[in-house]
Design a binder for these strands. Structure first.
Lengths: 326, 326
DNA sequence: ATGAAAGCGCTAACAC
DNA sequence: GTGTTAGCGCTTTCAT
């Protein structure tokens, strides 16, 4: 059994409140007593029980992060940055992969609430909006506007889509396609698609859009969808992928169909994950400021915890990283 | 303020212990009372405070996972599977990225202990072994044997290295290289390297080994190291990479040096992460059973929590996935 | 400068 | 069947 504050008090022959005081540096304690108490703590290898402290203080120093899956590199990087920044702010992070499972998401929401997390960062939401509102906990979402007073952070999706599409067109593409994750979810990232069609139309460029499945990270599905596109529209000479992962599979499929990139088809991805640079050829992509997004999300969460006002809309600029697929 | 058990008791006009009883389904409660209590809970949107429960029960249902960084795809997949399996067992998971930072790792260790996690899964350890032993918490490590009674799980690194090297040689390679992460850390994955040199020597095949930096996921470093190898040994016709991420950069560098894979140089990776299939050409690799490793690790942890005996050594077989780089 | 006592929200003897 | 009480480990008035 780990030593408690009582053990320390008994050992030194003082009251627990005295020990508590040195623990929290409150009030006056004679130097010798303080020394003795520190010594006893060392000897008994004492560590304050943070659960008990949390119960009393009503402050857990813990946040929850709910994302579809950390196995997706974009979320992995996001998660890594959030954890990093949380650590700097003395917060621990419980990681929750919803797998787009409504039930799991709901369970986690309650779980987190019951465990007194101070707030939740949401990169996934399949559960109904009301369930979030009634949770009564500070919330920040990624790429989802789910309520008038729930702040969200996202990259400038429309502008990102615009840049990608303009680049394709200015590079000489005449027949362009967009391959995107499901557009069924009400996500801000759907603006990438809006921009694509608007820009292509404005330039009078032939274009088409194909959606992959809803689960975002399903390679078999990607390859099938892309192959089908190449079969039905062999003349396509430019593709905008809504994520770098999809772009990687496009690259793979191009190789299968003997199309060289960027000569036969040009390709632009989205996200700017680390792997996009390792691809052959290195992927031209719309680079989201992942680290800033992560830090901003946590800042917004902490502000809410501290009852400070926050902006609901938080859109960060992307950077077009022109590499060798365009 | 969230409703407490007291609020429910007051509302229904009973004692808190009665409410607690229905909460925990203990003892006899008249049906009508039970109904009333349930109703009150619904109305007040009551949720038991798990922090209070943890304090009393001395059971937090929480584990800690310490890894170098979840931004590395291998750890991302591992983490995802651990979380998945933990959820199935009613455990929550605190994610800790040590970034190979001794101080951060140490802090997290204490943090987790103080927060009464039931055990820790360690995919990173820069801290001294004694610090782990004295933590007095169930522990399971990945790829690291840090103590006689601390169970570890790993893939069969030697056998993996052997298969990879034999494949290179049987495919006709005459001058082979291994590019590996730092060998300075006392990790079991170093056996991949041992196997490489032993097998190559036994076959009388010329071979060389180059180490990248210690931080495992540093692209600039990878590219430099690989380029240097190609400059000094242009005749190399086979490479074994100690991770798929490194293999991806080798592929990229091959393209830079106009070496075609697998014609000019053959390549075998290690890990079997999702991305290895998306590469062009799809990467031949030693596929670790990541999901099983994750589940086994948690099983071992839970067994320790329940005071059940466990095997210290837990080595799982790899599968050689022969794709198109050999 | 230190101790005594109450209480954070919940559970579990022990009464009756 | 239900209430009373003590206590999990800690912090914080309020005394002295």
């Amino acid at each position: 059994m780990a030593a408690t504050i009582k053990d320390i008090a008994n050992k030194v022959g003082v009251n627990v409140s005295t020990v508590s005081r040195v623990l929290n540096n409150r009030g006056y304690i004679s130097d010798t007593l303080r020394e003795n108490i520190y010594k006893a703590m060392k000897e008994l290898n004492y560590q304050p029980n943070e659960v008990a402290r949390t119960l009393f203080r009503k402050k857990s120093n813990m946040i929850g992060l709910i994302i579809p899956t950390v196995a997706h590199p974009f979320f992995a990087e996001l998660c890594s940055h959030i954890e990093d920044y949380a650590y700097q702010h003395q917060y621990k992070m419980v990681l929750c992969n919803s797998q787009h499972d409504k039930e799991k998401e709901r369970m986690y929401l309650n779980y987190l609430k019951a465990n007194q997390v101070e707030g939740i960062i949401l990169g996934s939401h399949t559960v109904d909006v009301e369930e979030f509102s009634k949770i009564g906990l500070p919330l920040v979402t990624f790429d989802r506007a789910i309520g008038d007073n729930i702040p969200y952070v996202s990259s400038d999706n429309y502008e990102g889509g615009r840049m990608a599409t303009e680049l394709l067109i200015s590079s000489g593409c005449k027949r362009i396609a967009m391959i995107t994750g499901s557009l069924d979810l009400p996500m801000l990232s759907n603006d990438r698609h809006t921009a694509f069609t608007e820009v292509a139309s404005r330039h009078g460029v032939w274009h088409t859009v194909v959606e992959t499945d809803i689960f975002g990270f399903n390679p078999e599905n990607y390859e099938g969808v892309i192959s089908k596109l190449f079969e039905s529209h062999p003349e396509i000479d430019g593709i905008f992928a809504s994520s770098d992962v999809i772009a990687a599979y496009i690259l793979k499929t191009c190789s299968k169909y003997n199309k060289s990139v960027p000569e036969d088809v040009k390709l632009v991805g989205y996200d700017g994950i680390a792997f996009s640079e390792a691809l052959v050829p290195p992927l031209t992509t719309v680079k989201q400021p992942i680290r800033q997004m992560a830090e901003l999300a946590l800042d917004l969460l902490i502000k809410q915890v501290n009852q400070e006002p926050v902006n609901v809309t938080n859109i960060l600029a992307n950077e077009l990283a022109i590499r060798q697929t365009t």
